[in-house]
């Protein structure tokens, strides 16, 4: 149970109210969002996500490069907004499949399967 004590402010007391935090309270450490590549060339491989934007593709301009002919040069973009990652199709040839459904874009959730051509990722939400 949290305990909190507030001083009465009057002419004789300092103009600061004292607040006591619950014992052992501390902000939780951040844990990275992760894409685990489970199928396709180069798998298995784990990608910890830290950038606000990340292009996935076969081309040299991609941040996360996939050596697969089924993947377009710039296939998809990961975008972090309010600490949630979304994936968006960049007019790729083979599209993005989220848990088997072709989507143009999606906010990712823990356990989602994301497929780009023959490459399959499992997304794990961090915090």
């Amino acid at each position: 149970m949290a305990s909190r004590r507030t001083q009465t402010i009057d002419d004789d007391s300092p103009q600061t109210a004292m607040t006591k935090l619950p014992a052992n309270f501390k902000p939780r450490p951040r844990r990275a969002h992760v894409l685990d590549q489970t199928a396709g060339p180069g798998s298995p491989k784990r990608h910890e996500l830290s950038d606000d934007t990340l292009v996935i593709g076969r081309g040299s301009a991609a941040d996360l490069r996939l050596d697969s002919d089924d993947v377009s040069r710039t296939h998809a973009q990961l975008l972090r907004v309010d600490d949630e990652y979304s994936i968006e199709d960049l007019d790729s040839r083979n599209g993005i499949f989220l848990n088997g459904l072709q989507v143009h874009a999606a906010v990712l959730r823990d356990g989602d399967q994301v497929q780009l051509g023959d490459v399959v990722f499992i997304y794990s939400e961090g915090s």
Binding site: S86, E88, D89, L98, L101, Q102, H104, A106
Partner: peptide
């Protein structure tokens, strides 16, 4: 017929 559950944050084209 392709059937799925509508889900927040998903965009279809």
């Amino acid at each position: 017929l392709e059937i799925f559950g509508a889900r927040e944050g998903v965009t279809l084209r």
